[in-house]
Design a protein around this nucleic acid. Structure first.
Lengths: 243, 243
DNA sequence: CGTACGCTTGAGCCCCCTCAAAAACGGTGG
DNA sequence: CCACCGTTTTTGAGGGGGCTCAAGCGTACG
């Protein structure tokens, strides 16, 4: 279920772009890290593989001694409230950092949606490393800012969009990740359930199904199987109309 | 309306706490900055005062050449969608950083809710400074993580709470800022309108009024004037029940 | 003293939630 | 390869929270 392979050295890449650099046409959505930087960082980390989907990488409330980098797979960050219901706060894709903490404890639980490989950095080592390598620390700052922007955007979607539009934005977001979107056929293969999507979009699984049906009736998507959905990206974009 | 006073030297403080340090009892909610660090930072910044409430400090889409630190007053970050409606993304209080950018442009507009004083850092100078001062860059990283956590929390509130609970959380948040909350009388003086609160909580101004009335009927708050509200913090906390 | 703006209250309607059950899917073992 | 079974997805019916439209009220400011 869980195995530590310190020997393996997966590629280290962080999904984010410098917010202050104007994007000239097609911008790279990954922060450049030189091979030297990569191996310096890799020296700090353990590589851990989770074979089973549904595994918890970490749990809310647990002492936060590590920061994680997702190398491969899809994860879900969620928080369970006193009421018992769950809010999914984010989905993580390769190149994302996770392990958000407050006062020494993780604030969210992180669950594997698919089998996945992560790099685990001890926070103490990482913070010491940052002081000697400001340029690399800067990469992490940029990533934090990137995630802040992403979360603000989700806040806007939740505050102003009806369920169909929220789903449209979500599907477009998913289609940005190559491993799960076939850009030739325009078919996206969702790794997560209706319940997961619902808890992310602040609604119920039934409403997700109905929203997909609504998008389908407008001709914006087509259900191939429940998890495989063919998109008309341009039409969906104009429907979602996110400024 | 707007005046640059490079001579003045307001206190520089950043509202955030290191996420990886366990809070022992009462934790300071401000990152410690030595006088030396403060004056080094101050050298990079212009001090700007906005006398008039309603002034825009910056506008979404504008080239993002500066990062700002709010020294005094209350600000509102909002985004206007193609539809025309507005989502308020955050309120900023003294010690908050603002000027979030993407691909070289600001993503939100920042409006003064009260008269305010800000420090304006040129991004280019700040980034150069970070490379020579990793410890100070670390403060900014911690602040970004702090804001990420705050935004995620708001996402949870928006996704799972009804309007009355959202308002309860909002009032508690406001009561954390000394200048607007009298801890003796438990009276909070809201600097923002019902419309602003509504656009922050993803609802309408009418619903905010009704939600206040609902809290009042439960005995959780009492309206002294429309903008001055007496709170029963403990009862509100258990009502909002944020895990 | 008048006017504009912000706040409050009311009425009617619609989106979406909840509860319930059927249908489809996918993995497993014979 | 097929039948079985648990899980996921879909569909249906009914009810409620909150939105919209509209009008009154209070207050600050010119």
């Amino acid at each position: 279920m869980k195995s530590i392979i310190s020997g393996a050295r997966p590629q280290i890449r962080i999904r984010a772009a410098n917010p202050w650099l104007a994007g000239h046409g097609v911008e790279p959505d990954h922060i450049p890290l030189s091979p030297a930087d990569q191996s310096e960082l890799a020296r700090l980390a353990d590589v851990i593989t989770f074979e089973t989907k549904g595994s918890y990488i970490l749990t809310q409330g647990e002492p936060a001694r590590f920061l994680y980098l997702l190398s491969d797979g899809v994860l879900m960050a969620s928080r369970v409230l006193n009421h018992g219901d769950r809010q999914v706060v984010a989905f993580y894709w390769p190149g994302d950092l996770f392990g958000l903490a407050e006062a020494g404890s993780y604030v969210n639980s992180i669950e594997a949606i698919t089998a996945c490989t992560v790099l685990r950095f001890p926070v103490s080592a990482l913070e010491a490393f940052f002081l000697k390598n400001p340029a690399i620390q800067h990469r992490f700052l940029i990533k934090a800012i990137h995630d802040l922007r992403t979360t603000q955007r989700q806040l806007i979607v939740m505050g102003r969009f009806d369920i169909a539009r929220r789903l449209a934005v979500f599907l477009l977001d998913c289609s940005g990740h190559e491993s799960y979107f076939d850009s030739a056929t325009k078919i996206i293969t969702l790794p997560m359930s209706r319940y997961d999507i619902a808890d992310y979009l602040g609604t119920s699984a039934e409403s997700i199904t109905r929203a997909i049906a609504a998008l389908e009736q407008r001709g914006l998507v087509r259900r191939v199987t429940p998890r495989a959905i063919e998109l008309r990206p341009a039409d969906i974009k104009s429907f979602a109309d996110l400024a």
